[in-house]
Design a protein around this nucleic acid. Structure first.
Lengths: 232, 232
DNA sequence: ATTTGTCGTTAAAATATTGTTAAGATTTTC
DNA sequence: GAAAATCTTAACAATATTTTAACGACAAAT
């Protein structure tokens, strides 16, 4: 069963946020708020929403920075909602990586249509299959279940995210810093000690012999790579 | 060599079409016209442009039909340009598959920014090729993987960087000092002992007979040169 | 032919990175 | 609120990489 798409609203004016949320609810999207930029960035990292609606006029962080940070660590589509009609703002936001730009006031129909277009567009890039198959284990992201030799294995939140991330990118090396950014968010420092510990825990759970892994290899000085089997 | 993106303009009013074309030319896009819907559909099929700018108010075919037809047979991004500001039109066009909707009058900056966003978005699906191919080995820089006779070869960080650098410049001699500068940075002293060791290690890994290399040749007194195969 | 200098090779020393364990800190669960 | 699980941090051993040094083979120069 797939949940309805989750949308994160980053907007400092409560009443506008509430208004948007009600529109989204009417279209049966799940929505979350953030009333500041920092808060928004953290929520974006922890929730991994399907889409972000971003107001540019935030109190703490310069709106364009948020676009940059989110896009550097993820692929989440961003629709900018702004009172600024100046062309230079639109250009800047779009070039920073925003996927669309709507100026206030806007109609609920247009907002929803643009959200649909954005989500549709994005789905083409993200594979629809929710099961990663490997040599002797599978990940079912739909059920959040990992089976090792048909037997369920318990993974903690972080371990699970990490395994999924590597599965998604099976075959190619993911650098330590990119992994850390994707799992712990953009404010985590680049110390990969914590990553090493988690990888050790994962290997203890899914590798026959953790000292000679067959699933996740380490490229010394660079990062980790998951074996490219029939993942996907 | 990659040509600049080609953009198809489907617009019945000549002067508007010319205006758009001049904007595109200014940003060094290649552009083509179609002044009717039928004509546009044919050109879309034969040219396979990178993007389509579509005016909704065409004489022959109902504009929405064009969106539907193009999208059903291809993945070309479509930006609708229209004088209609009615929300229902926007919603309909976007839901039909259009990727963006701009209302006239629009600024050239916004148009170009939206085109960039659209192209960028679309490129993600068709990822660029990052593979260097040589006689019996390949380097996949996306996966950071070196295959020798289809078998993965392990290279250390320096070895890998070095091999990539030479591949990038296949066919031409790279001087020792330029190599050292690129790999160890500008503060490394010009002693190429360390480079010799690394080259020996690389040759042991990728050359059949390291004493008679076929991939990386040394130009005595000057530097190293990688054989110019179909690298790229 | 001898000298000079460059290059390839090997091995050992120095350095850096990674895996592992265990002990607090924090959160979640009951 | 206590117990369990999880997350984080620190220390240390194991391992891999990078650097340095020494030396023989070979080519160019005298």
């Amino acid at each position: 069963m797939n949940l309805n798409p989750q949308i994160l609203i980053i907007e400092d004016e409560k009443n506008i946020a509430m208004y948007i949320a009600s529109i989204l609810r009417g279209a049966s999207y799940r929505s979350e708020f953030a009333t500041s930029g920092i808060c928004g960035l953290n929520l974006a990292a922890s929730l991994c929403p399907d889409l972000i609606l971003l107001d540019l006029g935030l109190p703490d962080i310069y709106g364009f920075e948020i676009i940059e940070k989110i896009k550097s660590s993820s692929d989440i589509p961003i629709i900018v909602i702004s009172a600024r009609t100046k062309e230079s703002d639109k250009v800047k936001a779009l070039d920073m990586g925003a996927d669309d730009y709507i100026t206030k006031p806007f109609g609920s129909g247009e907002l929803l249509a643009r959200i649909r277009a954005c989500l549709r567009h994005h789905q083409k890039t993200t594979r629809s299959c929710t099961v990663y198959k490997h040599l002797n284990f599978t990940i079912d992201t739909d059920k959040r279940l990992v089976l090792l030799n048909e037997e369920p294995v318990h993974l903690t939140q972080i371990e699970y995210k990490l395994l999924c991330l590597l599965s998604e990118n099976a075959g190619k090396v993911m650098t330590y810093s990119s992994i850390i950014e994707k799992i712990w968010g953009p404010f985590m420092d680049d110390n990969n000690q914590i990553l090493r510990v988690n990888m050790a825990n994962i290997r203890r759970k899914i590798e026959e012999n953790p000292a000679q892994p067959v699933h996740v290899f380490t490229e010394i000085g660079v990062g980790y790579r998951m074996a490219e089997n029939d993942a996907g």
